[in-house]
């Protein structure tokens, strides 16, 4: 475990005030059940995501990634600790698109706006704009079953972004729970590029959960490694200066090196579970 901590560069809260926090978790623990059979999913997690920052949460199964996202999304409450979200409504995207099969792509994107009570014309305008953003302009009238897997996931991205456009004040925040995990390699590659483009265009903060180190290195400004059962923050890597995506992440030899380093740390975390 020490190897992991040593490998960590910790740029955490030192240079904070210039950028506001989109999310701040302080000493967050979450356990399920009571007594000896209780399962501790998260244990003392401190994590801060600044406005417009792209953070990847990396971990093997059982690291409480989904629990953490649920807490930030307001779908669950921490057992101890505090979760401060500077957003009216964080946008959430899951591994499956979860589109309503009876609604057209555009009406799916409109759903959060409809829930928020926006008028028809306004909803339509925002939905068209977001569909254009994910390159699905003109496809809005199609139903989910008439779209490919990658297109469906882009509709889901547009719908998630619509949550940040409901008129609620606050910093936009996008939570993604392994959103590309179920896609084929080519589509995943394209969607990763599309996500970076959309992130730069919208300036939203992103918390992206994945178990794929290469994906994390490609996308993130900062990678946070979580241990499993219970989930704790055991390592952090800053891959890019936090400038909203102006700088590309490490490529070539540097990229390979950091990927290797993170992979080694992840392996270390996983193998520590087999030892007892």
């Amino acid at each position: 475990m020490t190897a992991v901590t040593d490998a960590t560069t910790s740029p955490q809260d030192a240079d904070v005030p210039e950028r506001e926090f989109a999310v701040r978790l302080r000493g967050v623990s979450r356990s399920f059940g009571v007594g000896p059979r209780a399962v501790v999913a998260l244990d003392g997690v401190d994590l801060a995501v600044r406005a417009g920052e792209f953070v990847c949460l990396l971990g093997a199964s059982g690291c409480g990634k989904s629990t953490l996202l649920n807490l930030v999304a307001g779908l669950d409450e921490p057992t101890t600790g505090s979760v401060d979200v500077a957003t009216g409504r964080p946008a959430v995207m899951f591994q499956e698109p979860g589109l309503m099969p009876w609604l057209s792509a555009r009406r799916n994107v409109e759903l959060p706006l409809r829930v928020a009570g926006l008028g028809r014309a306004e909803r339509r305008a925002v939905a068209e704009e977001l569909l254009d953003l994910v390159r699905l302009g003109g496809q809005g009238s199609r139903r989910p079953h008439q779209l490919s897997g990658g297109m469906r996931q882009r509709v889901a991205l547009a719908r998630a972004l619509a949550c940040t456009r409901t008129g609620a004040t606050g910093l936009p925040l996008l939570l993604m729970d392994e959103p590309f995990g179920a896609l084929d390699a080519i589509t995943r590659d394209i969607l990763q590029a599309e996500l970076l483009r959309v992130w730069r265009a919208t300036g939203t903060a992103v918390v992206f959960v994945t178990h794929d180190v290469r994906e994390a290195v490609r996308l993130a400004e900062r990678v946070v490694l979580l241990s499993s059962r219970p989930g704790r923050v055991v390592g952090e890597w800053r891959l890019r200066p936090g400038d909203g995506g102006g700088t590309a992440g490490p490529t070539g030899a540097a990229g390979a090196e950091v990927t290797e380093e993170i992979t080694a740390a992840l392996r270390e975390v996983i193998s520590s579970h087999g030892r007892h």
């Binding site: 779209l147 490919s148 990658g150 394209i190 599309e194 483009r197 994906e215 290195v217 990229g255």
Partner: peptide
């Protein structure tokens, strides 16, 4: 090594091509 990167312009074309191929 960090995954094939597609240039912004080419990206749109590849994405459009994928959509055309994958659409049921």
């Amino acid at each position: 090594e960090t995954g094939s990167r597609v240039e912004p312009d080419g990206l749109a074309d590849v994405a459009a091509g994928l959509d055309a191929l994958d659409t049921p």
